[in-house]
């Protein structure tokens, strides 16, 4: 009995201490981590999407919520004064989720540019989605109501040769972005207006 008790007590105390310790560490590092996420994942993509933004979309980021869906958006004011917004959507590629930052002109609902933020694709094949701009540039100028499926699936997007799955992942992400945009646009507009 004594042995059992000591088993339970030791394990419990140990786990509790571990929980507390981790919670403390988590709290200390949280702000830093958030900053890092922005800095390394989103900032480069946003900079490329809005090369001529007059504001700092990163700093002006905001969370918009509708029907229980929360989305972090990066509003931008372009040099021509037009308002745009960027946000990230996800699709599934070959080795996991593909993150796609989509920049949209709020007025025209047209895509300004898209960039791949995260991927865990095969180097050389799937990773080209990030480096090879000719693929992502297909999206530029397209309306948010266009069909972002791959040509194979009857859509408008040409797959990268030899990287069908990754292309599919990007296309999925774009379609997801469409849905998000459709759902959250009113909120976004409201947000930007502030």
């Amino acid at each position: 009995m004594r042995e059992m008790l000591s088993m339970i007590v030791v394990l419990t105390v140990l786990t509790a201490v571990s929980g507390g310790l981790l919670a403390a560490v988590e709290q200390t590092t949280r702000p830093q981590i958030e900053e890092q996420v922005l800095k390394f994942q989103k900032e480069p993509a946003i900079k490329e999407i809005f090369p001529d933004a007059t504001n700092n979309p990163i700093q002006e980021r905001a969370d918009v919520t509708a029907d229980g869906t929360t989305l972090q958006v990066f509003p931008a004011v372009l040099s021509n004064g037009k308002k745009a917004v960027a946000f990230e959507a996800k699709g599934t590629g070959f080795g996991g989720p593909v993150g796609l930052m989509v920049g949209i002109n709020i007025d025209t609902d047209e895509i300004i540019a898209v960039r791949v933020t995260t991927h865990s694709e095969t180097p050389g094949i799937g990773s080209r989605a990030k480096e090879d701009l000719s693929f992502v540039s297909q999206f530029a100028g397209k309306s948010m109501s266009a069909n972002f499926s791959l040509k194979k699936g009857g859509g408008d997007i040409d797959a990268m040769s030899g990287a069908t799955v990754t292309s599919g992942g990007v296309s999925q992400a774009a379609i997801a972005a469409q849905a998000l945009y459709k759902k959250l646009k009113p909120e976004i507009v409201k947000q930007i207006a502030n």
Partner: peptide
């Protein structure tokens, strides 16, 4: 605490 105790 809960998980640890349960497992234990």
């Amino acid at each position: 605490l809960g998980i640890g105790a349960t497992c234990g």
